[in-house]
Amino acid sequence: MTKGTKKAYIDLLDNLDKLEISYKIVDHPAAETIQQADSYIAGLEGVRTKSMFLKDKKHFYMIVMDDKKRLDFKDFQQLTGTKRLSMAHNHDIDEQLGLEAGIISPFGLINNQTHNIQVFFDKEMLDAENILTFHPNLNTHTIFLEASDLMKFIKACGFDYKIIDLK
């Protein structure tokens, strides 16, 4: 089943073009899992990422990391001073990012007008390679772009980000 919308995908590409950000798109069947998505882009250069959307009582957090790494909640809480984190609910994902579970990525920040999401990147992922991969608001495509261009996009959306060293 396809997740995301064609409009969200086209709006994203329009924004990347306006920012003069270079990217490569790979079209593929709908990817329902990380493993499936990775299989569709096997052999192509780039860090396979996952974006986790978490919350506490007052805030939302997006953590972007290599999809092979597991998030240690206690480590993240120590690094960031957060407490009582949980995975955001589907209605939170839709309300805050205009996305569905399974296609969460930093590109959803374009839909968050309240700028109430704190964004974190795992340092190791950024050190590993310069090209990152994501679903571009639709799970029938994978986008490849340089980490510096992703950071440019995030800044253009009015967000800051922090780079942290997740264990």
Rank of each mutant, 00 (worst) to 15 (best):
I93S: 04
Q36N: 12
L99T: 08
M62C: 07
L99K: 01
Q35G: 15
T80W: 10
S39M: 10
H59P: 00
D75R: 12
D75V: 13
K55R: 15
K55T: 05
F60K: 00
A101V: 08
Q77L: 08
D56F: 06
Q77D: 08
S51G: 08
R84E: 11
D75N: 15
L79N: 03
Y40V: 01
S86H: 12
T82M: 06
K50E: 05
M52E: 05
G98F: 08
F76A: 02
L54W: 09
D92W: 02
G43L: 09
V64L: 07
M65W: 00
F73D: 08
K55A: 05
T49I: 09
M62R: 00
E100T: 14
E45A: 14
M62P: 01
K50I: 06
A42P: 00
L99M: 13
M52Q: 07
H89T: 13
Q78T: 14
A37H: 03
V47S: 03
I93N: 07
K55Q: 12
K58C: 02
E45C: 12
K68H: 11
F76K: 01
D72P: 00
G98N: 10
D56N: 14
Y40T: 00
L97H: 04
V64I: 15
K68Y: 10
K69W: 02
H91R: 15
V47F: 02
K74D: 13
